[in-house]
């Protein structure tokens, strides 16, 4: 077993949340070329990614695998405003069973763009994904970025996201996390620049025996920086979710704000939800809030919807999806949005 996705600060070992242990066999050793990639934009796809060290990352082994053995390197430089979303699609299938990608996106000063990155599996077979997405946002830039995981539930999914933001930079991240046998995410934002902002909205939906391990970390370093994390999820069957969210007000982050909200709907009495929403603070003049809630679908809401003629399952799906809707609005591609809704529907059945 190896230990990955460590929290920035440890708590008691028997709380079972400091990290996650996975079988080493889950990390693929045999790496084949990956040729099932599409991009819809004319933007130049470069390959000279910087390969700099990650601040946190999932762990040495997974990070090194991407740096040394990635079978897809993508560097995008946003040096003009893009009105249409730039869409990257990775389709894992029998001929492309292993994706190890290293993506770097540099958003130049005053530039705006929307980027959508989609991971999907074609067959219901065991594939492998391990990737890094690094964003460097320069002064006054705006990036809306969505990462959509539509992998099957046999595939291990490891993903590491890192954002570095300069003054007045703004990154709005949306993560749709539906697939993966083990779906392990490390998300780190460094708001170094004054007035920089980061929003992160996540949807996760666990069924069968899926395991989600979400480790989200926001360092606020610049003055008047702002981070807002909203995570909405539901767990079916024997699925399990660990949510670890850290907002760290570092010295110098005067008048910074940080909010973190996690809501988990339990749809089975065998599902398990662990949450560790941390607020760390070394600066006086800041505002930090977090809230987390776990529970089943509200009986009154169910009763109301069922009294309007819906069956139990439909009513339950409506309530769960209602919590996801606001986040789904961030997906700026109707076709993809409908594909996600269809996937959510079928996984809730």
């Amino acid at each position: 077993m190896i230990t990955i996705n460590e929290t920035p600060i440890r708590t008691a070992r028997n709380f079972n949340i400091n990290n996650i242990k996975i079988d080493e066999l889950n990390i693929k050793k045999e790496i084949l070329p990956f040729n099932s990639f599409k991009i819809n934009s004319e933007i130049s796809v470069l390959e000279d990614v910087s390969n700099s060290n990650l601040t946190y990352g999932l762990g040495h082994e997974l990070e090194q695998q991407v740096k040394e053995n990635s079978n897809k390197k993508i560097k995008l430089i946003i040096d003009k405003d893009y009105t249409e979303p730039i869409e990257l699609e990775f389709l894992l299938n029998k001929n492309n069973p292993c994706l190890i990608e290293n993506i770097e996106i540099i958003v130049e000063e005053n530039r705006k763009a929307n980027v959508i990155i989609k991971y999907k599996t074609e067959e219901d077979l065991e594939f492998y994904h391990n990737g890094i997405i690094k964003v460097i946002s320069k002064e006054n830039s705006l990036l809306n970025i969505s990462v959509v995981n539509l992998l099957n539930t046999k595939t291990n999914n490891f993903i590491c996201i890192e954002n570095l933001e300069s003054d007045n930079a703004n990154i709005n991240y949306t993560i749709i996390d539906l697939g993966g046998k083990n779906s392990i995410t490390n998300y780190y934002s460094n708001l170094k620049g004054a007035y920089s902002e980061n929003k992160l909205n996540t949807i996760y939906l666990g069924n069968e025996n899926q395991v989600f391990d979400l480790n989200y970390i926001g360092d606020l370093e610049g003055e008047k920086t702002n981070i807002d994390i909203d995570v909405q999820g539901a767990l079916k069957d024997t699925s399990k979710k660990n949510f670890k969210g850290t907002i760290n007000f570092k010295k110098g982050s005067k008048k910074a704000k940080g909010n973190e909200n996690e809501f988990c709907t339990l749809l089975s009495d065998k599902a398990r939800s662990i949450a560790l929403p941390m607020l760390l603070c070394s600066e006086e003049d800041v505002e930090g809030n977090h809230s987390t809630a776990t529970g089943k679908v509200d009986d009154n809401q169910l009763f109301y919807i069922m009294s309007r003629g819906f069956e139990y399952k439909e009513a339950m799906k409506l309530i769960v999806k209602a919590r996801f809707n606001k986040i789904l609005e961030n997906i700026k591609n109707e076709k993809l949005k409908n594909e996600i809704i269809y996937e959510i529907d079928s996984r809730l059945d």
Partner: peptide, 17 residues
């Protein structure tokens, strides 16, 4: 840390700094 192992539960946590 909150570790919830059943669905029939109402759990909430809030913190301010």
């Amino acid at each position: 840390t909150a570790d919830v192992r059943t669905d029939e539960v109402e759990f909430s946590h809030e913190a301010k700094i």
